[in-house]
């Protein structure tokens, strides 16, 4: 079944709220999921796969707010920790023009990609590599994502951020950002079974119906003339 971007974002945001994500963090996580869904990277299905791990267990804070050349994520989800971390790294990139950070124990690096895309709009470009293997490059107009990132199968890597754009070699098959517009135009097609489960999580944020709520909550009276 086809869904609008609005529906995917709203359902995900409510579901994150239902899982205990605070205001703002729920919006960031919903953005990550919707972006991945719009780029045909199965955002909703990935969300479903991780929801048990993060349920009522929001932990998006780091203990240290000093820039180090190594960050151990201890397998905490980037849905929680990613938004603040990328903002923090953006801040240092804008200060220093270029930074290079080693990530360790990152269980879901794909969730970083939408956040790095958002950074492109601030003219901060990124590259994810390890041992000369390129995992991702985010440029002005296109994006390359290696299958290992798509499969969340590279826990350790270096993230390079720069105010200068990294080139994507012509031999690499890259994605065009226009894919987003095309899919918004045609509707998104999340995995239906995962969508239903995520909808159940969203349902947690609704107040159960009661006689009092029904009578008073929306103002009462219903003149039928």
């Amino acid at each position: 079944m086809s869904y609008s971007y609005y529906e995917v974002y709203t359902n995900a945001q409510r579901a994150f709220s239902g899982l205990g994500f605070p205001y703002g963090a729920d919006e960031d996580a919903a953005y990550i999921i919707s972006w991945l869904e719009a780029f045909e990277l199965e955002g909703i299905h990935l969300f479903y796969n991780i929801q048990k791990k993060i349920d009522s267990n929001f932990n998006g804070a780091l203990e240290n707010n000093k820039l180090t050349n190594k960050i151990n994520l201890e397998k905490r989800s980037c849905l929680m920790i990613g938004p603040g971390l990328i903002d923090f790294l953006n801040f240092h990139t804008l200060k220093n023009n270029k930074i290079n950070i080693e990530f360790q124990n990152c269980s879901d690096p794909l969730f970083l990609i939408p956040l790095l895309y958002r950074a492109v709009k601030k003219n901060i470009f990124s590259k994810i590599i390890n041992h000369n293997k390129i995992y991702a490059i985010l440029g002005k107009n296109q994006i390359f994502i290696h299958n290992d990132i798509k499969n969340n199968d590279c826990a350790n890597f270096f993230l390079k951020l720069s105010t200068n754009e990294y080139q994507i070699s012509k031999e690499i098959k890259s994605l065009d950002y226009n894919l987003l517009n095309k899919n918004i135009s045609n509707g998104l097609n999340p995995n239906q079974s995962s969508w239903d489960k995520i909808s159940d999580l969203a349902f947690r944020t609704f107040v159960p119906e009661s006689e009092e709520s029904r009578e008073k909550g929306a103002g009462g009276g219903d003149a039928n003339d």
Partner: peptide, 12 residues
Amino acid sequence: SEYLILKPEFRG
């Protein structure tokens, strides 16, 4: 950004 990395509950 240095603050929010410690206190993500204020992002919104």
